[in-house]
Write a protein that binds this DNA or RNA. Structure first.
Length: 390
DNA sequence: TCTGGGGTCCTAGGACCC
DNA sequence: TCTGGGGTCCTAGGACCC
């Protein structure tokens, strides 16, 4: 039987602030933006005890805990702490999958553990003493159960789930507490009488299959304790890079929207450049006053990470869908490719591109990119000279 | 005064090709 | 007159997670 461990940092952002400034230990700490439209993204247990929860509007948190220490959130620092912790763990445990900024799975099947209670208590203590971040640990034989286990006791909890515990520790839980079942699915499941994870296991209802779609057997396997235990050790390359911004007031004033939109394009461009990637598909997203989200996307002929190109294409899409006052605007790039891979492909593919496209336009686009990040060598120009006669 | 921002994965319809 | 089917790509939208 594999041994899969899930480690979840407790109130991670708040704990990072305590790590940086230990005098905050034991205080009410709230991470949140400071506009009337901000929400709480993390809170210390002291604040949680007062009723603060993640996603609570800032103005409410401020009402309930006026004297709490409020931080706007320093993601760069939190990422740094995250890396510190996981590289520390990774040195000892090579089979580690980083699942998010504050949690990871570790396959300890090959680690000799004689006294599990003591072993994990020591590990938790060591993380706290070395990294100054508290964590909860879940130990089981697959990822789903380990994840559910680490969630059961917080902060600084340690929970074991053995095969025989599945029916007693997992099945009685509310259906919305099942990892992977969110608000929409749990509402539909409750409507047909499925209120607990146990109900889901016992159901043999076509309606359940319809609600869960392609995830059906995945969820059933998880609930039965037959989930997967293989870890993904490779850090996946990003599939999209995006930024969004909620306006201070809903607006349809194009100048105001533009002012917010350009910096978002800059952020996306800078992020792409920092990871040396280009994106083919640009997507813009808006949210109206009623919180209805609308996307518009377009695949470009050539990938880019150029801010002006992103802004230009984004504004074109925005023009099409902007019909009313909006609350949020966002832009993201997807269908990403590493710049170096694109350079290598360029020689090979530009013939095809060329044949498919109106020549002047294509060369202009090539040159636009050439002027920025990607170099177009002289021999590419030669292809341009030669090939039209074909 | 309600309700952020960063992602991933899946579905479904239409266009297009063979 | 009535009319295939398989496959891929693109776009829009939805569910979910931290």
């Amino acid at each position: 039987m594999p041994i899969i461990v899930h480690i979840d940092m407790n109130s991670f952002f708040a704990s990072c602030e305590v790590k940086r400034n230990p005098s905050l230990k034991g205080k009410e700490i709230i991470i949140s933006g400071k506009t009337n439209r901000s929400i709480v993204s993390a809170a210390s247990y002291e604040a949680k005890r007062k009723g603060i929860y993640t996603t609570m509007p800032y103005y409410l948190a401020k009402q309930i805990c006026p004297d709490a220490y409020f931080f706007e959130g320093d993601h760069e620092y939190y990422s740094k702490v995250s890396k510190e912790i996981f590289s520390f763990l990774n040195k000892r445990y090579p089979l580690l999958e980083m699942a998010s900024i504050d949690e990871c799975y570790i396959d300890m099947s090959n680690i000799k553990i004689t006294e599990p209670e003591k072993y994990f208590k020591n590990l938790q203590k060591e993380i706290y003493e070395k990294m100054h971040i508290p964590c909860s640990i879940g130990v089981s034989y697959n990822k789903f159960l380990a994840k559910m286990a680490s969630d059961m006791k917080k902060p600084m909890g340690i929970t074991f789930i053995k095969h025989k515990d599945v029916s007693t520790k997992i099945w009685p839980l509310k259906i919305e507490d099942m990892y992977g079942i969110g608000k929409a699915s749990s509402k539909k499941l409750r409507e047909i009488g499925i209120n607990t994870i146990g109900d889901l296991v016992k159901s043999d209802d076509e309606r359940v299959k319809k609600i869960l779609g392609s995830y059906y057997s995945h969820h059933i396997d998880n609930a039965l304790g037959k989930g997967i235990s293989t870890l993904d050790l490779t850090k996946a390359t990003p599939k999209s890079v995006g930024h969004s911004y909620t306006l201070a007031f809903d607006s349809d004033d194009i100048d105001i929207i533009k002012q917010s939109f350009y910096p978002l394009c800059e952020q996306v461009s800078n992020r792409l450049k920092s990871i040396d990637m280009l994106g083919y598909t640009i997507t813009i997203v808006i949210k109206n006053s009623q919180f209805v989200v609308t996307n518009k996307s377009k695949k470009l002929m050539l990938p880019t990470n150029d801010v002006d190109k992103i802004y230009l294409e984004g504004m074109k899409l925005l023009d099409i869908i902007l019909k009313e006052k909006i609350r949020l605007i966002g832009v993201s790039m997807s269908s990403l490719i590493f710049a170096k891979d694109y350079n290598e492909q360029l020689d090979f593919f530009n013939l095809q591109h060329y044949k498919l496209s109106k020549s002047d336009q294509f060369i202009e686009q090539l040159n636009q990119i050439a002027g920025k990040k990607i170099f177009i060598k002289a021999k590419d120009a030669k292809i341009y000279e030669k090939k039209p006669s074909n």
